[in-house]
């Protein structure tokens, strides 16, 4: 199964990166962890994200669209980085996350979310919607 693993932001990570021996050490530790993921055939993709001050949001309400500039307030709910992993089950994903060096200087959180897989949709999508969906995809692919 495929999971997305979110590294949650902290006040520190929202400040951006400033060079320090601690940061260098973290890069080394994280590099080792990533290597372990690669050598176990688990790592599919991953990257770090800039602080939310570089981000934007678009708020939807009926027909209206409002653009909101970052930074955003609820730091703990923001994402600072992600991986995509291929694992056997959630238990395995949890064990891998436990092995991750703390990605932040203080207390921090990592969240694991499984991707929807084909079979999860089952009868959820009516055939005519699936057709529209496929048609849109085709246009995207043909772009």
């Amino acid at each position: 199964m495929r999971v997305m693993v979110f590294v949650k932001a902290t006040e520190d990570s929202e400040q951006g990166m400033t060079p320090s021996p601690e940061l260098s050490q973290m890069f080394i530790d994280m590099g080792k962890f990533n290597e372990e993921l690669v050598n176990a055939g688990v790592l599919v993709a991953g990257d770090g994200l800039k602080p939310s001050s570089f981000g934007k949001r678009v708020a939807f309400d009926g027909p209206s669209r409002t653009v909101i500039d970052g930074p955003f307030a609820e730091t703990r709910e923001l994402v600072a980085g992600y991986w995509i992993w291929e694992v056997k089950d959630m238990d395995e994903a949890v064990e891998w996350v436990k092995r991750c060096p703390n990605p932040m200087f203080g207390p921090s959180e990592i969240e694991i979310r499984p991707f929807y897989e084909m079979e999860d949709f089952g009868d959820l999508i009516p055939p005519e919607a699936a057709e529209i969906h496929d048609g849109v995809g085709e246009k995207l692919a043909n772009r």
């Binding site: 599919v44 993709a45 995509i84 496929d134 849109v136 995809g137 085709e138 995207l140 692919a141 043909n142």
Partner: peptide
């Protein structure tokens, strides 16, 4: 349907 190909 190439839209179903896994781009990743």
């Amino acid at each position: 349907d190439r839209a179903r190909w896994d781009r990743l």
